[in-house]
Design a protein around this nucleic acid. Structure first.
Lengths: 189, 189
DNA sequence: GGGGTTCTGTACCCATCGGTCCAGTTCCTC
DNA sequence: GAGGAACTGGACCGATGGGTACAGAACCCC
């Protein structure tokens, strides 16, 4: 609960969250025990409970961490041009295909697993997706002011649909042993 | 493992699978213990292990059950006409909105939770989605013979993309407390 | 450098859950 | 209706996992 104040404390907490995120993304949230995280991060049990009230809050930190990953990746592209949008999402698709073994969206796959578990976590997943959606909608709004997007379009609805399609393409179960994300007929040309 | 031969046995197994499916859809797979299922279905532990080798196989039966629900629902509509397709998927969306509390796709929400858990379950989820995909693709192929769909379209790719979009719209985390499925700009103008 | 705060290591607890066992009951078949 | 197979009930077990307690070490500030 209390944020760490010392350098050592900050490092420890960051290491715990980062390793927790990696393990949960790799094997799933429920298949990742606190002990697994401790072993991987080289910390003791008291650290985890010193920095978070329990596993639920730790998952919530992991969601925030994963949202950060997604937004950082998206920020590499100018999402207020059609070319930037195309390139940004193509990069996400490529990332899926290049990683060893199919994992799905770094945020969505974890979110989907904990959606049911509590009102608290459902709220946190909703928050994370809202922030992502706003991020995309902002780019679209800019495009309206620069004339790239029609003025009567609804940026929020478009952003929501975009994320939904992306989630469906990356997080819905693979159809074959190759685990490739669903091939979506491309709208670009 | 052995299929029940008597009437009573069939009833018992069906009851177990049905209740297991309902509970797992309602609260999530990992939040549903064997004991919960037994209590709800009014059976004893030996029945469960008499008809399945363990929880993993039970989940696999649940996946089959949920696929049956989805296909039954879709079968109510003529999926070899544009109107039938529109009506069928509108019905699924309506079902989402009408049920108390947001749950997602009856098949996809469960599949998404167990995808990570084992190669066995990943295979079974892939099978279930393949069968659904084939079901849609068959309708599209019929439409090619009747001239409703262009001959150079790829029914399998279209079916896959359709399911992906549906999953994204119903199973990606809700953005707000209303838990409504994502509003997708309708192609049916 | 001393004292209080922050942080760390580890042993321990207890609830839960998947799974086993076995004795007893019901059901089919001849 | 007798005998064997199919089915059922429930007590029991071991492992796992989340969470607690507490003493000791590192750190920061005066």
């Amino acid at each position: 609960m209390p944020e760490p104040t010392t350098r050592r404390g900050k490092d420890t907490k960051a290491r715990i969250v980062e390793l927790a995120a990696a393990l949960m993304y790799e094997r799933g949230v429920n298949a990742t025990s606190i002990d697994d995280i401790l072993a991987a991060s080289g910390t003791g049990k008291s650290q985890t409970y010193h920095y978070s009230s329990g596993k639920e809050e730790l998952v919530s930190e992991v969601l925030r961490h994963q949202l950060g990953l997604v937004l950082d990746q998206q920020s590499l592209f100018p999402l207020d041009t059609w070319q930037g949008i195309a390139a940004g999402f193509q990069a996400m698709a490529d990332m899926q295909q290049n990683q060893r073994g199919y994992r799905g969206c770094p945020l969505g796959s974890i979110a989907g697993e904990v959606l049911h578990q509590s009102d608290f976590l459902r709220g946190r997943t909703a928050d994370a997706f809202s922030r992502w959606e706003s991020f995309l909608a902002d780019g679209l709004r800019t495009m309206q002011t620069t004339g790239l997007l029609r003025g009567d379009a609804d940026p929020d609805a478009l952003a929501g649909a975009t994320i939904a399609v992306l989630q469906g393409g990356t997080c819905s179960p693979p159809r074959s042993a190759t685990y490739a994300p669903c091939a979506m007929p491309s709208p670009w040309h």
